[in-house]
């Protein structure tokens, strides 16, 4: 390095046009839409035409995917391990069910109401997870999840208790598309909601806000030292994630015309953690890949051993961890690597 270069190094007036240009190019590339994203959505639409008899399981996948992607905002971005994400899913489902039963059977309004209610719960409970260790957060999220299940159980006059909530049916979506017996409309509806949700979350992921979340996860002390207000950010992202989880719950209630107390069960929170782990955290589409794999495996298992599939799910989890998530996620290495913009410049 010459003396001239050195002098220019820290002086404020001079600017490096080449570096600026390169920085802008790199940043743009970071949030570019990848080919595999397009492939996924095309495949999802193609499934509608190619697999007409599989609408129910496809719907299940779409709902689980939305649920898992919402958890990714909390886990993969903000780094909070939650054992109670089903609380928001369940609350959303009940909200949508009750709305359809008592007020309006318009599905889209149901989604908004579910998002609102679940988001409110997320906002209120987010303050409880701000401090403390991973352990405290596990306790808190698990506790809140169980508490919501207990609330639903105790308020049987409202929720139907252990029998669940039934006896409602939905109007055509926006007055145009009627739910059919084969679940075709249901699938397209869920897919559309998943798509919109995904696009919104994608914007969040690549925004300065999304980056600041990852900073909090990566190194909270340093994040503070570049003035990231960690608590505010966590409150916001937890609320948003709760809203999307609530929407996923609402989709389940609307497409099945039934809300069982199972929507709040612990295993749902554990399942969604697993889904996300299979698919990989921190790049959103992990939730989609995970949902596809998980649903197929679970479906296959419950055919083989209807009563004890839980055992095999558990075994898969144990093996998964022992093999190592990192190693396992390498199969998808091409995808997340590209998404997070780590590729080299040519």
């Amino acid at each position: 390095m010459t003396m001239v270069q050195q002098e220019a190094l820290v002086s404020r007036q001079s600017s490096d046009a080449a570096a600026e240009g390169r920085a802008v190019r790199l940043m743009k590339r970071r949030s570019r839409i990848r080919i595999y994203e397009i492939v996924i959505w095309l495949a999802a639409v193609a499934a509608y035409f190619l697999l007409p008899s599989k609408m129910l399981i496809l719907t299940e996948i779409a709902i689980l995917a939305l649920f898992a992607v919402s958890l990714d905002l909390v886990l993969g971005f903000a780094g909070i391990v939650s054992l109670g994400h089903a609380a928001f899913f369940g609350v959303g489902a009940y909200a949508a069910g009750l709305l359809a039963l008592h007020y309006t059977a318009e599905p889209v309004i149901g989604l908004f109401v579910a998002a609102l209610v679940a988001g409110l719960l997320g906002f209120l409970t987010s303050f409880l997870i701000l401090r403390g260790s991973d352990l405290t957060r596990l306790m808190t999220t698990l506790g809140i999840g169980l508490m919501m299940a207990e609330v639903a159980n105790q308020m049987a006059w409202l929720t139907g208790g252990a029998d669940g909530l039934s006896g409602f049916s939905l109007n055509p979506i926006l007055g145009l598309f009627e739910f059919d017996l084969y679940g075709k409309t249901g699938y397209l509806y869920c897919l559309a909601v998943l798509f919109v949700g995904m696009m919104i979350m994608r914007r969040i992921a690549f925004s300065p806000f999304g980056l600041s979340l990852k900073a909090i996860k990566s190194n909270p002390m340093r994040a503070g030292m570049i003035s990231v207000p960690a608590r505010k950010r966590v409150v916001v992202v937890y609320t948003i994630a709760a809203m999307f989880a609530g929407i996923a719950g609402a989709l389940l209630a609307q497409t099945t015309s039934f809300v069982s107390p199972d929507v709040l069960a612990f295993h749902r929170s554990a399942d969604v953690l697993m889904v996300l782990t299979i698919g990989g955290t921190g790049y959103l589409y992990g939730g989609v890949f995970g949902a596809v794999l998980f649903t197929l495996v679970k479906d296959a298992l419950s055919v083989v051993t209807p009563q004890y599939w839980m055992f095999w799910i558990g075994l898969i989890l144990v093996v998964l961890v022992l093999i190592g998530r990192e190693r396992l996620n390498r199969w998808a290495a091409y995808l997340p690597e590209r998404l997070s913009g780590k590729e080299r410049e040519q």
Partner: peptide
């Protein structure tokens, strides 16, 4: 931030300084 690139790292610090890092709708780019 080990998983970040230097560019992402510094962009975030500048965004925080400028008070725009709470924005969640536009990409950093």
């Amino acid at each position: 931030f080990e998983t970040f690139t230097p560019l992402e790292t510094v962009c975030l610090a500048i965004a925080e300084r400028e008070g725009i890092a709470h924005r969640l709708w536009s990409a950093m780019a």
